[in-house]
């Protein structure tokens, strides 16, 4: 014969203990609301810092790479991709028959709603009020979720170290005249300005040169919820390695699951409590009958 449950917990004790847990969660939930409000603050989007890269104007001189290295104190290295010591890189794409050519500047796209910042569990990556997506190394735990989450493969790691940090372009946010790469560009292929102004310039170029630009549109106006690095290209965006994203910000796809967390917490907790009460009565009755 089975004994009845060892626990002789009173209802009050139950509420006390569960209450402590719930209280903690509610603090968390209200903090979430504040955090969300905070991300809505900052400069209006058209006023934020941005870069416009026109691949048709780029001559591939790579002065931008050198300026970046100088300003960020990065060692020279011979790499084919962004790395822990290379925050920006010019690459040449060529179609198989050689008829189509284009350069492409790789760097952080400074998304309007960055996946890296949403995924970082310790808020080490975050978007500044004026646009740049920056990194606080002192918070970072090195989980590399940002590298996994970024659709552009931008965040990099110093794999040779035992305690590495994330490395990426921060749009020279502490530099008064804006990014060093844009300042040095001799062809005006890369220009720095307010996002609203740059979008206008890009659209003007499209209007003045019909048929010159791929699909007559600006990459980054809406992709993944918009980016602060806008790109014009004469060849298909996919050909120069820009992912085909839709217009939904990537963090939105996670947010719904996080929004139902309080529902799960209270729902599952409540249902479990109800089942506990119901089955305890039944178990007791059975024990008495036996």
């Amino acid at each position: 014969m089975n004994k009845t449950n060892t626990s002789n917990l009173s209802r009050r004790d139950f509420l006390k203990v569960t209450g402590a847990g719930l209280g903690g969660l509610m603090v968390a939930a209200s903090a979430a609301g504040q955090a969300h409000a905070a991300s809505g603050e900052g400069l209006p989007l058209p006023e934020q810092w941005a870069l416009l890269y026109d691949a048709t104007k780029c001559s591939g001189c790579r002065e931008c790479e050198k300026a970046c290295k100088r300003y960020n104190n990065l060692p020279e290295e011979d790499v084919e991709d962004l790395s822990g010591n290379t925050f920006t890189l010019i690459k040449l794409y060529q179609s198989e028959d050689g008829s189509e050519k284009s350069f492409r500047k790789y760097q952080c796209m400074h998304c309007v709603d960055p996946a890296c910042a949403a995924s970082c569990p310790v808020s080490a990556l975050h978007k500044l009020e004026n646009g740049p997506v920056v990194y606080d190394s002192y918070k970072c735990i090195g989980c590399r979720y940002c590298m996994q989450a970024c659709a552009f493969g931008v965040p990099r790691y110093d794999w040779s170290l035992a305690y590495p940090f994330i490395r990426k372009c921060e749009m020279c946010y502490h530099r008064e005249t804006g990014p060093a790469c844009a300042e040095i560009c001799p062809k005006q292929a890369l220009i720095f300005g307010k996002r609203g102004d740059l979008l206008e310039i890009a659209k003007l170029r499209i209007a003045v040169n019909p048929g010159k630009y791929y699909e007559d549109r600006v990459y980054g106006e809406f992709e993944g919820g918009g980016t602060s690095v806008l790109i014009l290209s004469g060849v298909p965006f996919e050909a120069i390695g820009l992912p085909a994203l839709d217009h939904q910000p990537l963090p939105d796809r996670t947010q719904w699951a996080l929004n139902i967390v309080p529902v799960i917490f209270f729902g599952v907790g409540g249902v479990m409590h109800a089942i506990y009460e119901a089955t305890r009565r039944k178990a007791r009755k059975q024990a008495e009958e036996a």
């Binding site: 979430a32 969300h36 949403a118 310790v122 970072c140 735990i141 090195g142 989980c143 996670t254």
Partner: peptide
């Protein structure tokens, strides 16, 4: 072993990011 800065695993307690599923998992 996997974390780049394992000595800071407790940072989740002070630098919370409620938009991160990894924060919730942690």
């Amino acid at each position: 072993v996997d974390l780049g800065q394992p000595q800071r695993i407790w940072h989740m307690l002070i630098y919370r990011n409620l938009h991160s599923p990894l924060f919730e998992v942690g």
